[in-house]
């Protein structure tokens, strides 16, 4: 018996991959969330294409939630953790030029050396942080 969470994970994952495949084969672009947002925010490459992608990314889950119910977020309400997390995720993904979608999904599937090494690095850092902060210190 496979837990329902895993099934939803797989279905959602297939949707993520289908979106990335469409963005690649139709638009000719790599679907990387940090690159698309970053290109708008720091004005290095703003475009209607990026803007509409973000509009769908923010708007569609709202419509989905209205119909099927909004998922639980279990998001912390500690402003220190939110700001610290946001700052390091934003800076880190722009320095590395990619995040879970660009380096992870698009990079690994292309057997990109940079993508695979980046993924190992952020996963490793995540495991260590979770061990230190969650298990040893109990911060989150």
């Amino acid at each position: 018996m496979i837990p329902m969470d895993w099934t939803y994970g797989l279905i959602g994952g297939l949707m993520i991959g289908a979106a990335a495949a469409m963005y690649l084969l139709v638009n000719g672009r790599i679907m990387g969330a940090s690159g698309i947002l970053g290109g708008i925010v720091d004005a290095t490459g703003p475009s209607w294409e990026k803007g509409l992608f973000i509009a769908g990314l923010i708007g569609a889950p709202f419509v989905y939630g209205l119909v099927f119910g909004f998922p639980h977020t279990n998001l912390t309400s500690d402003p220190v953790l939110l700001i610290l997390g946001g700052l390091t995720v934003g800076l880190g993904t722009r320095m590395a030029n990619g995040c879970t979608s660009g380096h992870g999904v698009c990079g690994i599937s292309r057997f990109s050396v940079r993508g695979i090494i980046a993924t190992c690095a952020y996963l490793g850092a995540g495991f260590v942080t979770m061990f230190l902060g969650g298990q040893l210190l109990g911060v989150f």
Partner: peptide, 11 residues
């Protein structure tokens, strides 16, 4: 960059 990202992802 990836190290920082992984840290923030966990936080």
């Amino acid at each position: 960059g990836s190290g920082l990202f992984g840290f923030g992802w966990a936080v």
